[in-house]
Design a protein around this nucleic acid. Sequence first.
DNA 1: CGACGTATTGAGTTCATTCAATGAAAGTGG
DNA 2: CCACTTTCATTGAATGAACTCAATACGTCG
Lengths: 266, 266
Amino acid sequence: MAQLALVKPPADAPARGECSDCGLITWCLPAMLDSPEVHQLERVMRHRRAISRNGSLFHAGDALGSLYIVHSGSVKTTIVDDNGREQVTGFSLPGEIVGIEAIDGGKYPCNVTALEDSSFCGIHYADLNRLCQGSPPLQSHIHRVMSREITRDYGLIFMLGSMDAEERMATFLLNLVKRCPSSADAGMRLRLTMKRQDIASYLGLRVESISRILARFSAAGVIEVCGREINVTNMQALEHVLADRGKTASSLPRKPAISWTRPVIF
Amino acid sequence: MAQLALVKPPADAPARGECSDCGLITWCLPAMLDSPEVHQLERVMRHRRAISRNGSLFHAGDALGSLYIVHSGSVKTTIVDDNGREQVTGFSLPGEIVGIEAIDGGKYPCNVTALEDSSFCGIHYADLNRLCQGSPPLQSHIHRVMSREITRDYGLIFMLGSMDAEERMATFLLNLVKRCPSSADAGMRLRLTMKRQDIASYLGLRVESISRILARFSAAGVIEVCGREINVTNMQALEHVLADRGKTASSLPRKPAISWTRPVIF
DNA sequence: CGACGTATTGAGTTCATTCAATGAAAGTGG
DNA sequence: CCACTTTCATTGAATGAACTCAATACGTCG
């Protein structure tokens, strides 16, 4: 589970399915390149899965089999309560792990659904656990991956507990840009793979609010919106949405699209 | 980090500070009783810390030294953003671990503050890591502890993202009762160690809302409130606050304390 | 006791929601 | 390929849940 979904996979499918051929290796195993563990992992991490759009990698309640690394595409993670209410807890991109929440309890506590046609590297948890025994660096890596997920969750908790709607959207977009490989491209152009409803759920808001806030940002010249394509034209203004709130009240104009066609400072 | 704070520590301080003498051992090391690892842990987990009320176990940004298990008392975990806004992310009770969020990055990302005079068992992360090498069950245990924290966070995310104020409070109280050792006692009496402001932050609400909701619940005969003492007199009504919302709108009366002096069904 | 931090309560406001209607886009099947 | 249906997205007007501001009570500790 990683922070936010987006755009192009950083690399194409590996030639033979070997980890060492895969462009994602720096993500999956950053600390262990060239180490023998990588080759051991390759043996164990043999199985690949492809899931088409709206398909499910696993459902909440399924027995924990494998942890998965997103190889291409993107997914959303959702949890459902007893009453059937659903909540998106995150979006995952190539190189990021899903399934680690299942280690305690032996069951996946969440659903993982493909937002587009996607593929995954699977590794049986039991195998991974065994591999960890002999490999301190691999074990540390696992610890760090899990710990990073906890840290990520804290960020989300902070957002949901302390931020208003515009701040949440700004956070979402900024995170998106930061994680987007193509953010180096001129223009910070994003192609969202999830629908508005998913964003709404993730941000703890309603679909209508998402539309309204995007429209407001757009009117203020901070972004350009065209369906699921979003072009961030003024990063600093987005950052200021966050920075200003802690103290000041002010914000982007709510009803009228007056003023603010360009931010004052920049 | 565990779910909710509360009341009596399950057991008193161990005689000599040995893990095997500690009443919390079934919490800390459930799968490993009688195993040699426990004795190894005792050697490593030598250091104890006592923190008085409002004192800090560690601050956000401090270098990761030790993971801590709450031995007695209770703490809150908070995160602070760049603007200084603070958010309570959880309350931890005896037997529960704090600090695991720090493994990735090597710095504690959060503050841990004692809600009352408290004591802790500390274990150096480096030592723990080394110990894990030789001990598959211990390693699995660590994985599970971290994974459990992730699952807990998901619950909080769900609450903040999908529930209204009354539901959040009901969730909070129910969780409290469930985790409270004295819940076996007649009456489900809770003695909260945190202040209203902490609850408010944790639930993503304002202090005033906390007061109002408690008053509402109290007027409805669901709980009795006396400062930080709360007596849950009708568990099922609390559960229904959660169950009913998914579909139906209705709730406890907002302004007037009319009707509902006893719940209809029970 | 007075003084400070904490908790409750009331009145008015606001932000996000609900409800409803329209538009755009994407599947489906003849 | 085009009508058809369905899903998804936007926008407006009205409602409401939680907020802000402010005043009062409670409690604890000098």
